[in-house]
């Protein structure tokens, strides 16, 4: 959720926005036109994709439905299970705390992850922000995350995020530097599975307290966050993006360490 600008909304970007693609001037830094080796999916990566859900210790497959006898009824049509998955501190129940900064003001933010499905490259959770508006001293939204990898590319291609916006946002993460030239090429896929840095897009969908409420005075959640999570430090950094909000509102979160772990599983 963006922090509403106290002053009328203006684009107060610290770095100039490359609305014009710098291609023409500097082919090295242009993501679109420079030619570089295109990374294709590695064999291990494909293997891993297959491993994430299907082939790993699924119980014996339930037989075919069409051959049931007439009075035979089954409780479950498939024995495939949907176990919770995890990666570093990205696990159901994991909590992060920190701040979102806009200029000089900052607001307390708490994130709680609810579900992680690595096979689908996605996770979801709650994002809580304090002190945004007087009417709502605390706001919690539900968000879904796309984990950048074989299923979701660095290119957003939606939510009004054009390639140049992707570029300027991802570029702010030092860990993104190696991919500056390749991130938008066909066949490039970031193999997140064994990396220290996990890139994501977090998109808020509705208010947890009332999912019917579409808009609140002084707060909106129409944009999304570019996120980078580092496994070795368990830190999350992010930038909020929305056309009409102040740019590059900065999110920093630390993991709230826990050493005991509950569990649930969708039936």
């Amino acid at each position: 959720m963006p922090i509403p600008a106290t002053a009328p909304i203006v684009l107060t970007t610290t770095t100039p926005l490359p609305i014009v693609c710098p291609v023409c001037r500097d082919s090295n830094s242009c993501p679109k036109h420079c030619s570089n080796k295109v990374f294709t999916k590695s064999y291990e990566m494909v293997e891993r994709e297959l491993k994430t859900r299907s082939s790993v210790e699924q119980p014996k497959r339930a037989p075919s439905l069409a051959c049931r006898s007439e009075d035979e009824q089954w409780v479950d049509i498939s024995n495939q299970r949907l176990r919770c998955t995890k990666m570093g501190a990205l696990y159901p129940g994991s909590k992060f705390k920190g701040v979102q900064k806009s200029g000089k003001t900052s607001y307390e933010v708490a994130v709680e992850i609810q579900h992680v499905d690595l096979a689908e490259s996605c996770l979801s959770g709650y994002l809580n922000i304090k002190g945004l508006t007087t009417e709502f001293p605390e706001l919690t939204t539900f968000f879904e995350a796309e984990i950048i990898g074989p299923k979701h590319s660095f290119l957003t291609r939606k939510w009004q995020a054009e390639e140049q916006f992707d570029y300027t946002h991802w570029k702010r993460f030092p860990a993104f530097q190696p991919y500056l030239k390749t991130f938008n090429q066909d066949g490039f896929a970031y193999d997140f599975y064994d990396k220290d840095f996990i890139f994501m897009r977090w998109k808020e969908h509705f208010l947890v307290s009332d999912h019917h409420l579409r808009s609140i005075d002084g707060a909106s959640y129409d944009g999304f966050y570019y996120i980078c999570y580092q496994r070795s430090t368990n830190q999350i950094t992010g930038y909020y993006f929305h056309h009409q909000s102040e740019w590059f509102q900065h999110l920093t979160l630390e993991h709230v360490e826990e050493r005991s772990f509950g569990t649930y599983e969708f039936r």
């Binding site: 859900r53 299907s54 497959r61 339930a62 075919s64 439905l65 069409a66 049509i77 498939s78 024995n79 495939q80 096979a119």
Partner: peptide, 15 residues
Amino acid sequence: EKAPLIMADLVKDSE
């Protein structure tokens, strides 16, 4: 009657 059940068989165990 039958087609949906065959489809269910085809997809139920495969993502």
